[in-house]
């Protein structure tokens, strides 16, 4: 099966090369979307063998995912895996996410950091729960890790997926799309790798608050 990994990256020159190399045993191609980085992210990704799409301006996570998924579809992907560039995911988990899609049992698989009970720091767990609850209240779909960046889509789901949110709200928007299109969802426990670096890269409290606010406004007004 033609599995393509999509890696959105913003100023991740320290980690993106390693992430791309770690993915290659598990996927056919890697598409890195350099989202307007000021550092050497694009060069590092190219050197590691990824196909790189460059955003001239920083447009946010949702925009980068949309670009990467479009490119992966053009490259003939039969399944698409989204993977964070900060090194918090373990490439060994990719196969477990694509397996249910390959078997035709699911349209989307989300890697859940919660199901693997061990290592999520308490502050993260609390923030995650709030994100889940808000996503559930707004969009009526419960996912144990709504803000997870590790997901796999079938080609059909990726084609149906419509991303309108350019920034962090995209994670909840994808959950909304599950319900809208009636996709079959599987949640797969994954091992998050929490280093000081990946901890510093996630949504901080203020960004989380802003994300929540935007989601609310979107739900009420649009």
């Amino acid at each position: 099966m033609m599995v393509i990994a999509v890696v959105p990256a913003y100023n991740e020159e320290r980690t993106v090369g390693g992430v791309v190399r770690s993915l290659f045993p598990h996927v056919r191609e890697v598409v890195v979307v350099d989202d307007g980085s000021q550092d050497g992210t694009a060069d590092e990704a190219r050197a590691a063998g990824a196909r790189v799409v460059v955003h001239r301006l920083n447009r946010g996570l949702g925009a980068a995912l949309g670009t990467g998924i479009t490119e992966a579809l053009r490259r003939g992907a039969e399944a698409i895996v989204t993977f964070d560039a900060d090194g918090q995911h373990d490439a060994a988990d990719v196969k477990r996410l694509t397996a249910p899609i390959e078997a035709g049992e699911a349209d989307i698989a989300i890697g859940s950091r919660i199901l693997e009970r061990r290592s999520m720091p308490v502050s993260r767990r609390a923030a995650n729960w709030i994100g889940n609850a808000l996503t559930f209240v707004l969009f009526g779909q419960w996912v144990s890790d709504s803000q997870s960046g590790l997901r796999a889509f079938s080609r059909r789901a990726a084609e149906e997926l419509e991303i309108k949110c350019d920034r962090m709200e995209v994670s909840s928007e994808i959950v909304k799309e599950i319900r809208r299109h009636g996709w079959r969802l599987t949640e797969v426990p994954i091992k998050p790798v929490y280093t000081d670096y990946s901890m510093s890269k996630g949504q901080g409290f203020l960004v989380g608050l802003k994300t929540a606010g935007k989601l609310l406004i979107r739900r009420i007004m649009m």
């Binding site: 460059v54 955003h55 479009t70 490119e71």
Partner: peptide, 20 residues
């Protein structure tokens, strides 16, 4: 904001198509 994203995306995809 979203329109800008669409333009940036289109440019990126075009350039990567060429260099690729």
């Amino acid at each position: 904001d979203h329109d800008i994203t669409l333009v940036v995306r289109e440019m990126g995809l075009k350039e990567s198509g060429k260099s690729g």
